[in-house]
Design a protein around this nucleic acid. Sequence first.
DNA 1: ATCCGGTGCG
DNA 2: CGCACAGGAT
Length: 238
Amino acid sequence: MGTKKYSPRRKQAENRALAISSNTISWFVFQIMEWFSKNGRNFSWRKNDYPLYRVVVTELLLQRTRAETVDRFIGIFFELYPDWLTIARSKSANLQKALEPFGLWQRRAATLRKLAIAIKSRGGALPESPEELGTLPGLGPYIVNAVLLYRENRPEPLLDGSMARLLERFFGPRGLVDIRDDPFLNIIARRVLQESEVSPLSLNWGMLDVAAQICMPADPRCEHCPLTKRCPSSTCAK
DNA sequence: ATCCGGTGCG
DNA sequence: CGCACAGGAT
């Protein structure tokens, strides 16, 4: 069938991702994990028994919002809204007010309310399959991956703008404009997570932290980067 | 392809 | 000041 999956541009991007050697991948993973063990950030949602409700809400709040900002106010929010049922029953004005510190509060209140009601009507639990998860309001590919990652420890990437920047600088440019359905980035990210015995959560966090603290959009700190020796984009002299 | 939004940092 | 922020819906 003539779906876009078989467009030449897609195919070429796939091949480019598959052509990267597994040695390069494992070196990348090792460097990230070594850096992460010393320099990883410590956010309140990076705990073992962090409830799934909190995972989803936290990821919604992290969209287009600095992690440090979310971390500062998320405790207060969860005191007010400890579960889906509380959100489903909440007054819209109160919910909006509680979301103000995070920004995007109008959309977020609407999304959270819709999601909470949808979950409530399903008996209070999230669906099992990725396909069903993706049908819930507010759950796009990123949050679906996050649920699979946190809930089942599946090796799914938290492929956001930051991780995309890191991967592109080290492995090469994407094939499509949109990160979400770019085959190059998605294949590389999954190879990174699957071709190693490392904890998928830690590895995701490691990539996000290197992206945020070292591999920033402008003026990256290549001199402190664990990847600089083999990074094609490094501005450091070798 | 556009919009949503306040915040923090250079 | 201007930009970037752990995306998703329309």
